[in-house]
Amino acid sequence: MSEPLLSVRNLSVEFTTYGRTNQVLKNVSLDVPAHSHVALVGESGSGKSVTMKTIMGLLYSPPAKVTAGEILYDGRDLLTMPEKERLALRGTSMSMVFQDPMSSLNPVFTIGDQLTTILKHADRRLGRKRSGRERLARVHEVLSQVRMRDPERITGSYPIMLSGGMRQRILIAMALLSEPRLLIADEPGTALDVTTQAQILKLLKDLVEAHGLALLMITHNLGVVRETSSYVYVMNKGEIVEHRPTSELFADPQHAYTRSLIAAVPRLTGGTRYGHPAEASS
């Protein structure tokens, strides 16, 4: 892989609650090169979301505390960067696609109000001046990019008026508004039916390729990993236990935990499971 845009080095995080301290991340290291598609995969509770929130500066301290390591974005350590500068990066050069649209969208404001407000904040952080009409035009442009028909109608709609798949597209549009270099996607489409989820994942993959973005996909779904990523980090109990190019990992997993994840994937009798012949059932 090429030089990393994002480089996490020996990151350790602990939580202290009710007088007890637990280490949640243990010397986590991972790289996301520019223009690459990288996945961080593991079961629920493995530490994926804590890693993502630490990168984005979204962990509450206390109870969380970074005890070691560094997070380098374009060569600069986010953990030692002044808060104002880090805030300027978040939502502009680094953007998030969250997994739950209904908790990320405000039900009392229209989609247009929410998108233009986000764009206004991004413009202010970047020192960019744009009129209200220009912001609305940019919102319509991004809604078209995420394949939303009739952007004018969508901007006047409230979240409750849209389907789950449409709301997920709105979250992707929010992340793209400021033209970021790095996109972190946290289990996008998890709550959707499989057909809509496949459409959302294809859209996301098409967009990051079209815009030349780096993508870090946070997921527990190995099918998502295979469809969206070229390199995989496997996390278990707060540690990276294996990391390899996607094709190599599925063809010949080395760590017992990775093998157990692949073995847990449902399969059809007589079919194949990620390149391995499926055993015939008795």
Rank of each mutant, 00 (worst) to 15 (best):
V142H: 03
A175S: 12
M52H: 04
T219M: 04
S157Q: 08
T269R: 04
T17G: 00
K84Q: 12
L58M: 08
E14R: 13
L30M: 09
R135D: 08
A185F: 13
A175G: 09
G212S: 11
M96V: 13
R273T: 14
P159G: 13
E141Q: 14
T117L: 13
A175I: 13
R244C: 04
V146R: 12
P82Y: 10
L89V: 09
S103I: 06
Y158C: 07
A34M: 10
L89I: 15
S144F: 05
G270R: 08
E279Q: 10
E85A: 15
T228E: 05
S144N: 10
E85T: 13
G45R: 02
P188A: 02
V97L: 11
G238R: 06
L79Q: 02
T17P: 00
S95T: 15
N221F: 01
I55G: 05
R153F: 10
S7C: 00
E227V: 01
I118G: 09
T246Q: 02
L176E: 03
A122H: 15
P188N: 01
A39D: 06
Q145R: 09
K26Y: 08
T190F: 05
K84C: 03
P245E: 12
G57N: 00
V146I: 06
L261D: 12
V139K: 01
T269D: 15
S44D: 04
L201T: 07
I154S: 03
L87K: 15
L176C: 14
A191I: 06
L87T: 14
V28G: 01
D74M: 05
Q114S: 05
L11Q: 03
K120T: 15
A185C: 10
R130E: 13
N106I: 15
R20Y: 07
Y18I: 10
E187A: 06
G189E: 05
M174P: 12
R273Q: 10
E227N: 09
E14W: 01
R153P: 00
L215N: 12
V142W: 02
D206S: 07
P245S: 11
T21W: 03
L5G: 13
I218M: 07
Y60V: 07
T51Y: 00
T92K: 08
